[in-house]
Design a protein around this nucleic acid. Structure first.
Lengths: 342, 342
DNA sequence: AATAGTATTGCAAATGTTTTCATAAATTTG
DNA sequence: CAAATTTATGAAAACATTTGCAATACTATT
């Protein structure tokens, strides 16, 4: 009751209350098997009574893990990453870690700043989205020898352990789906690829796959839009009112595809009769729009959960080994695409 | 170069490299005005050369702030909160704080566990969504004297400082909008109100407003659905194929409203000619669906940004004063509602 | 040139834990 | 029953900082 008021409830206050030494209190938490059950009970009672809460900052100072993992994403806002964040968060929480989260708005310099900030907090590991990062970031990571993980993308050559999908393949799958359906006049709506290797890989793969079949995209049918339903809708509106409208739209991700769908509906076009639309991602909700969006499924939840699991394993393991996991992609044909063959 | 390898780059390594005492190095960071510019330069050079990164854990142990704020949300996944999280994150980042994020999946016991976890990390403050929390949580907060903030809801009587909107009013506005348009047969789709005071306040206000005009909702027109487009769509499908279909649907939030909209489209109903739909929230994307969703606008971004700003002020202030901010609601009439008058 | 003041710096204690080592008590073993 | 283990505890050093206090060097004042 004494120092109850003073707010100075630390391990020695508990020790005093339980009439043991601080060492014993500490041991009760960290190696309970080493302390007499009776003493343990006394201590736990004191802990309860005083409302003691362990101080991880002090633990961290001893080289113990801080119990935090930093995750830096481009944006929290959109459907795109919120699903991975949720899954990753849940997953590391299960392993007893807490999530430090930051976003950089597709600015790799800000990404660097965030990683640095996390390093000050002595995170036990830092997870980044994508494989492309500033030199400074890469240097920082290797120099500080901090466990790092690349989420979302997969590549054989990734220097960092990674858990994700092959975005190149995603682009190709989308293109091939449209080609198989007989489309030759294809419009493209992608975000700025600067600082966004996901979009970049997808787009180049699309061009490649299209090129293989001798299909090229005229300039006025290739347009840029950020990952925003509203702005994508505008861009699609413009593209669709172009003289010779394409028969299909291939969109950089599902957010853009939704924007395109709404644009088509606004113009009174019937999807998929007048226009086919395909997205990439299969975000929550993509299955439910009317008509259901055809898309390349990237298993965000899986990626997040798996990433969290593997990463915490990696961090807590004595001799961690490099890992890389490719998550499977799948073309989910719903109702926004149709065959041109009659 | 010596201990460059050993990874043991601490303040004394820097001090040694710069040929000064550790105190001076520390002062260079914390009270630069107290140290000679020339020495400062030497030290900064050493910091650069060794790649030193400050250790907040050690700082925290001295009663310095940890520089982290914990935010516990029901879910990260949905559009609902991702916008607030983003805004809050950006806002506290500006003030030099880092965000610890966790979700509880609408389980107040898990909320308690998350707050505790954050307390172990010695967060400088903890922000929660809504005003309803478990007794244990409330006790913990007052006992530990940790700055706490309620986000999203507003209420005069809130014991915690809060920044948010009046959900009671939101429900009322939605109901009144439909009443004004002449609707009397109104269907309701809301989530489980257990552990979700937002939904609870909205729903009770709706019944109240409807009751005032002598309108009551038959049981088969009031149904539950979680905040998921897909499940809401199912629920709406069921409700709309009921014998006597309502002329309007009032949905617990925009996610549900979108589900309802897609359900109507699937059934070939024209919105708003055959059916009016109103949501609550005005999430990103609600403006862009076709037809544009009529809804009660809750300024999520504003709330998040304001909350972050006020809270960091509160935390860093010497004599912090209790604050509560009510954010304005607005009925945004788009194209999913129409007047029944001919 | 002596005094008072100010600007810089270092020493050492303090912060809340964990852990190694030593010690004491209890238990097993021959 | 004595010797050898095992079990349970405490003392103290270590972790990476910050800061009050003291010491020194420098500048301004008379």
């Amino acid at each position: 009751m004494a120092n109850f008021q003073k707010g100075k409830v630390d391990i020695v206050a508990v020790a005093k209350a339980a009439k043991v030494s601080p060492s014993t209190v500490s041991r009760t938490f960290n190696h309970p098997d080493l302390v007499n059950p009776a003493t343990r009970k006394k201590i736990n009672k004191a802990v309860q009574r005083l409302g003691y809460i362990r101080n991880r900052a002090a633990q961290t100072m001893h080289g113990k893990r801080s119990g935090t993992i930093g995750l830096v994403v481009p944006t929290i806002n959109h459907a795109i990453f919120s699903e991975v964040i949720q899954a990753f968060s849940d997953s590391i929480d299960q392993a007893g870690f807490s999530l430090l989260l930051a976003s950089h708005g597709y600015d790799l310099d800000r990404e660097y700043a965030m990683v640095r900030k996390f390093l000050e907090h002595r995170v036990d590991g830092v997870a980044l989205v994508g494989l492309e990062h500033s030199d400074a970031t890469n240097r920082l990571i290797t120099q500080q020898k901090i466990p790092a993980l690349a989420i979302w993308n997969f590549s054989e050559e990734s220097p960092l352990p990674c858990v994700g999908a092959d975005n190149h393949l995603a682009g190709r799958l989308a293109a091939e789906h449209l080609l198989e359906l007989g489309h030759r006049d294809i419009g493209l709506i992608f975000p700025e690829t600067q600082g966004n290797d996901r979009a970049q890989h997808r787009l180049s793969a699309v061009h490649e796959a299209l090129g293989e079949q001798g299909v090229s995209v005229p300039d006025e049918h290739e347009t840029q839009a950020p990952y925003s339903v509203s702005q994508a809708k505008q861009a699609a509106l413009a593209l669709l009112t172009t003289p010779k409208r394409p028969t299909a739209l291939l969109c950089g991700n599902d957010v853009i595809a939704q924007g395109a769908l709404f644009a088509a509906q606004k113009l009174g076009l019937s999807v998929p009769d007048d226009l086919s639309i395909i997205g990439i991602g299969d975000f929550k909700g993509s299955a439910d729009v009317e008509p259901g969006l055809t898309t390349i499924r990237i298993p965000a939840e899986n990626i997040g959960a798996l990433a969290g699991e593997k990463f915490t394993d990696f961090i807590t393991s004595d001799d961690p080994e490099h890992f890389s996991i490719r998550c499977d992609l799948e073309c989910v044909a719903r109702q926004t695409t149709r065959s041109l063959a009659t």
